[in-house]
Amino acid sequence: MCLAVPGKVVTTHDADGAPMAEVDFGGVRKEVCLQYVPDVAVGDYVIVHVGFAIQQLDEESARETLANFENLGLLEEEFGDQMAQAARQAGIEEPRR
């Protein structure tokens, strides 16, 4: 949860008056709130933490970091099924949803 991951803004839209975007994290796409980066546009890179962009980032740094995270398996940790991860860690069966 502490991780902040760089991603690329793919599309933008408005949800209940909040500026939102679809952001691509090396293939995984998530809804991200752009409230705190008002100048960001489609094609820009942002650092995203728990669904919120907290800073803009240049493309080269963003790509490097993403490649690192991918190699380290951190993207799977961040965007994978957390309930399943917790169950695996606990060594018990996943609770039914």
């Binding site: 502490c2 709130c33 705190y36 933490h49 728990v50 907290i54």
Partner: peptide, 10 residues
């Protein structure tokens, strides 16, 4: 920490 607080605030 301060990193997460803006998301909860919004």
């Amino acid at each position: 920490f301060e990193t997460t607080a803006p998301a909860n605030a919004m």
